[in-house]
Structures are given as C-alpha cells and as structure tokens.
Nucleic acid binder design. Structure first.
Lengths: 128, 128
DNA sequence: ATGAACCTTGGAGCGCGCTCCAGGTCAAGC
DNA sequence: GCTTGACCTGGAGCGCGCTCCAAGGTTCAT
C-alpha cells in the first residue's frame, strides 16, 4: 500500500505521507515522541523507514484526538520499559474515554447550533 | 429555570452559571464578544442580566466547538448590523459543517485507537 | 472599626504547539 | 567549478486563549 524504499524516505517525503510538516517532524523527534529515531544517510540526513512512518500515524492519531505532547511522551517512554503493556493499554483506554467524553460534549453543543440554525430558518428567514 | 434577580448577577455568579472563569468573562468583554455589555452597579461593578448570561451560553457553545475568538467576534459584530440575519445564518451553517468534519475526523482516529486497544487485549494481554 | 471578601483596571505572563530563521553542509546538474 | 535545492542544528519567535498580578475601591460581618 505505502511504498517505502529500503534506503528510507527523506524527511520531506515522510512529512507528506504523514500529513505533518517537516518542522513538526523534527520537533516531535526533539521532544522524544519517536518510537525509534530515523536512521541517517552518510551525510547525516534523516531516513524514515516504513516503521518510522507508521509510528508517525500513531502520533497523528493521538494528537488529532487531543492528547497533549507531554502525555504522548509518557506513552512512548513506556515502550522502552519491558512488560509495560498493561500500562500502555491503560493509557489508551483512558484516552479513549477522554475522546468519547469530548465527542459527547461537542455533539451536545452541535445540537444547540442546529437549534439556532433552525431558529434563523423558521423564525427569521421566512420574510425573504 | 435559571433565577436571575432583577438587579442582575455579580460577575462571579455569572461565571459560575456559565462555567467560565471571572477572568475569562472580563477577557471576552474586552475582546468585544458580548452582545450587550453587562450593566453596572452604582459602584461600578458588573451586573449580568438573564440575557447576558444566555449569550454567555452561546459563547460557550461556539468556543467548545472550536470557533476561534476572532471568528466569534465577527459573528457578534453582525448582530449590530441591521438585516444581517442571512449572514449570521451562513456563518452558523459553515461552522456547523466545520464541526461535522471535525467530528468525523476524530471518529476516524477513535476507530484507530479502538483497534490498537483490541490489539493489546487480544495479542498482548492473553498471557496474563 | 477592622478585616475579609469581592469587585475594578491595565497590563504582564504563560503554556502549548508549533513555525521560522540564520548559518552551515552536502549532492546533483549544468 | 558553480549554482541550486534539500537537508542539518540550535534557538528565537509567534498566535492563541486565557490567567495572573498589582494597586486600589467598596461592602459587609463581627
């Protein structure tokens, strides 16, 4: 599906695939959010493997659902601790609940938006 | 339902009712997000009417669904323009679409979170 | 009448998540 | 050989949305 050559992708290619910016990729790495740091070409440029890019997808998933950088960092660090699977699972489950609560709140407010739109449509716009 | 005495609520009471902080209330007012500025007591303290508090609810609705302060300001300003109902409606409808797109994206990522949780549950945690 | 609680203003400060910049290296193409 | 362009690093800067602070006024309970 995704085609990552064996020598790896440049940072700009990885950025494009992940939907993040080049600067954000370097920033995430600096913050310790990478599961494995990408390798380097002989001249020192980053080379992203399929695995590297896959993890970027995880980062996008967590960020887009509102997990702060700080919390993602803690999550990643658990991957370096042996036998921490239960802890990682707990974090994911807690985050899942967080997302569900968030969705619920937004949907409630969305209903209010819909009511306001209806109000404009029926009570205000009939004279048009 | 809500009980606002005729002389109005203090800022701390309005804060509690709206779920916003006292500082945020003053900040919103400074930024021009209020539909009507709250009145003042003889000594200069803000007094929030039922109408004032109701508008705070609208502000919360828009903020919690991700509308930036800047956009809310534009929306409020339309209330001061006569015959701008169609424009206000358009803004609400555009925002509604924005919220729907957002919800969609979050739900997609939520599905990925669920898959990751399932992975931990089935493939990793069975030994415990 | 003393002190606590609450309010006022203007403005500074802050946490977050990037985003941008300067100055430099390197590889490829003309 | 030279230019172009993508990459590197460390660090500064920024937009957002509050949040807090200082200095002062008022109100109220004991």
């Amino acid at each position: 599906m995704t085609e990552v050559p064996p020598e790896g992708l440049t940072i700009s290619a990885a950025a494009e695939m992940s939907g993040l910016s080049v600067d954000t990729l370097r920033y995430y790495e600096k913050e310790g959010l990478t599961l494995h740091r990408p390798g380097r070409s002989p001249s020192g440029q980053r080379r992203y493997t399929e695995q590297n890019v896959a993890w970027l997808g995880t980062l996008v998933m967590l960020r887009k659902t509102g997990m702060p950088i700080r919390d993602i960092k803690r999550f990643v660090e658990l991957y370096r601790v042996e036998g921490s699977e239960a802890d990682r699972l707990a974090i994911l489950q807690a985050h899942r609940q967080h997302v569900l609560d968030d969705l619920d709140e937004v949907q409630t407010h969305l209903a209010a938006i819909n009511r306001k739109i209806d109000y404009y449509n029926t009570a205000v716009m009939q004279g048009k």
